[in-house]
Design a protein around this nucleic acid. Sequence first.
DNA 1: GTGAAAGCGCTAACAT
DNA 2: ATGTTAGCGCTTTCAC
Lengths: 353, 353
Amino acid sequence: MRRVLLIPKMDSMTSPVAQATRGPVTRKDVARYAGVSTAVVSYVVNKGPKKVAPATEAKVQDAIRVLGYRPNAAARALKLGSTETIGLVIPDNGNPFFSLLAHAVEDAAAELGYALLLTNSDGNLTKERRNIRNLASRQVDGVILSSVLMEPDLADLESADIRTVLLNHSADAPGFNSVGVDLFAGAKSAVEHLIGHGHTTIALAMGTNAGNFLDGREQGWLQALTEAGLPEGPIVRSLFTRAGGYAAGQRLLASAIQPTAIFASSDMQAIGIMRALHEAGRSIPDDIAIAAFDGSEEAEYTWPPLTTVKQPAQAMAKAAVSALIGGRRNVNSEHLIFPTTLQVRQSCGCRRI
Amino acid sequence: MRRVLLIPKMDSMTSPVAQATRGPVTRKDVARYAGVSTAVVSYVVNKGPKKVAPATEAKVQDAIRVLGYRPNAAARALKLGSTETIGLVIPDNGNPFFSLLAHAVEDAAAELGYALLLTNSDGNLTKERRNIRNLASRQVDGVILSSVLMEPDLADLESADIRTVLLNHSADAPGFNSVGVDLFAGAKSAVEHLIGHGHTTIALAMGTNAGNFLDGREQGWLQALTEAGLPEGPIVRSLFTRAGGYAAGQRLLASAIQPTAIFASSDMQAIGIMRALHEAGRSIPDDIAIAAFDGSEEAEYTWPPLTTVKQPAQAMAKAAVSALIGGRRNVNSEHLIFPTTLQVRQSCGCRRI
DNA sequence: GTGAAAGCGCTAACAT
DNA sequence: ATGTTAGCGCTTTCAC
C-alpha cells in the first residue's frame, strides 16, 4: 500500500480557553462550574429521581454544554449493574440473511437505547462459546444467539446466568426464549407451488446442520411431496452458502435422476445452484425450476429473479430484542414462531405480469 | 405469530450448593474463598503486575472455577479508563460490502481482545452523528467511521476527543487517520479492460455521494477514456444499491446514445443494472458488457459472473483497527491507500477458460 | 429543592 | 509474596 500523508502529531497543548480541566470532563466539573452539587447534576442528566428548580436546571444544562460533558457509561454501568448493551452472536455477518438480521437487531435495540456488541462465530462452535463468554464478562444485559447448533446445549453451560434468547431457532428449546419461523409450513408452501407448476421430480438442496434434529424445511418438502402422491426427489446436502449451493448444483446435474425442480433451503444455496445450472446451459425455469428459503434482497436480483420463502427478519429481530429487554422479562421459555410468506418471482416458472 | 410454549419462570431458588453467594460473584468472594486478599486475585487474573506463588495461584484459580467468577468489565473499564471496545459506524450492514467490512473489523478487533459495537447510520447524517456521540459516551476506545459524507466535517464536531479512523475513505482527510483504496487506479484498470475488448462507448453508472469531491472512480473512468482517445460516455447517477442500479440501468437503456459497455461504481449497482438488461432482453456481455467496483462475493454468482475491481476488505479492516488501537497510536493524520485487483470474470466479455 | 456520602467491582501504588 | 486501601465516575438514600 501507499502511504500518503504522515504528519506527526502536534503537541497536544490544546488551548485551555474556557475549558481548563483537560482530559475527560466529569460530573464533578459540571457541578463545580454550575455551582451545585454532583447529585443535582445527576438529577438533571437523568431527569430524576428528584426534581430540580428550573433555574438550577438551566445552569446545569449550561455547564454541560460549555464543558462538553458526556456521562461516563462505564461508571454508570458499574453503579447500575447494567450496560444497556446487548450482545449478538451470529454465524457470519457476511451472509446476507444474518447481516440483515444484525441490522434489524441493532435497530430494535437502539430504539430502546441499547447498543449492540456484534460477534461472528464463523460456524465454529468453539468460537461461539468464546463469544458468549466474552459477552458475558462484558456485562451485556443479554445476548441474542443465532447458534451454530440446533440444540444449544452449550448455552446451558455458558449463558448460565445471562439472559439469552435464541434467534432464528425454530425448534423447541426448553428453558430458553426463542424466536424463529415456521420452517415446515414455509418449505411446504414453496414445494406445493412448484408442484402446482406440474413438477413431479423435485429435489431438495438442504443445508447441513450440526445436530440430529430433522430440519423443518426437509419435513415440509417431504410432506408436500407425500400429500401430492409424489415420490421423494433426490437430496443433496451442502453448506448454507453460495459455494455450497454451487457444488450441490453440480452434484445434482450429475445425478441419475434429474429433477425438473429444486427446492433449496436457503437463498445462498439457490444462488450457487443457479450458477451451476447456467454454466451447464440449463434454462431456469424451463429446464429446471427453483425455489428457495429466506427472502433476502439478493434473491430479487438473480436471473431469473428467485422465488423464495420470506422470513420476517425485522419482526423477528424486534421480538428477540423485546423478549430480552422489553417488558415481561420474567418469562422463561417462550417460543415465538413467525409465519413466512411465499415471494413468487420467475425462477419457479411464473411469468412477469 | 404463534406462541408455542409459555412456561412461567420457576422461582429462582437456585440450589445454594457450593455457591451460597447468590448474584454476581465478585473478586471479593473469590478472595475470601481462596483465603487471600483481593489484590492477589487481581494479580492472578491479570497475570500481573505482581508475581504470586504458584500454590496461591492454584488456590485462586480454583476459587475462580468453583465460584464461576467472571471479572466485571464495567468496573475494570471505569478503573482503567478503557473498555477494550471499539465502535464501528457504517452506512448499512445490509450492504454486502459493509457487512464484509464489519466482519473483518470484528475479526481484527477480536484478535487484539477488543469487542465491536456496531451501528448503522442508514445513509443518514443525523443518525451518523447520533451514533458517534452514543459510542463516545459509551467510552469506546476509538471509532472506525465509514462516513456517509466524503468530507467528515462532522467528525470534527463530534469525535472531538475520541480517536477516530476513517475507513473506506479514499480522499485526504486532514487531521484524521484514514484507510481506503485507490479508487482512481481501480476504476481506470476496469475501464481499460473494457476498452481492451473493443468498446468505444462506455457508460458510467456512478453512485451518489453527499459532498462535492469528484469521486476517484469517476476520474479513473474518464482518464481511461481520454487516454484511449475515446469520447466521454453517458453518465447515470443513482444510489449505491441494487435498486439504484436497476433504475440506472433502465435509464441507460432509454437514453439516446446506447453504450456497448458499462462501468458501475459498485457491485450492487451493477447487479441492478444486469437485471434491467436481462429484462430488456439484452445479452451480457454480447450486447452490453459490464464491469464494476468492490469485489463482493455476490459478484461471483451473478449471471454472467461479474468482472469487478476487488477491494482488499480484510487488509483494510486490519489496518484501520491497528491504526486505532495497535502500536503507533500517536500518529495523527496518516492516509493509507490500498491497491485494488481486477477480478476478471465473464460480464466484461472474457470467456471461461 | 439541594447536598453529603456510601459504595458499585476493580487496579495498583504503597505498605508489610 | 501478600495485604491494605484510595479512588475511577456515577446513582441514590438520607439528611437538611
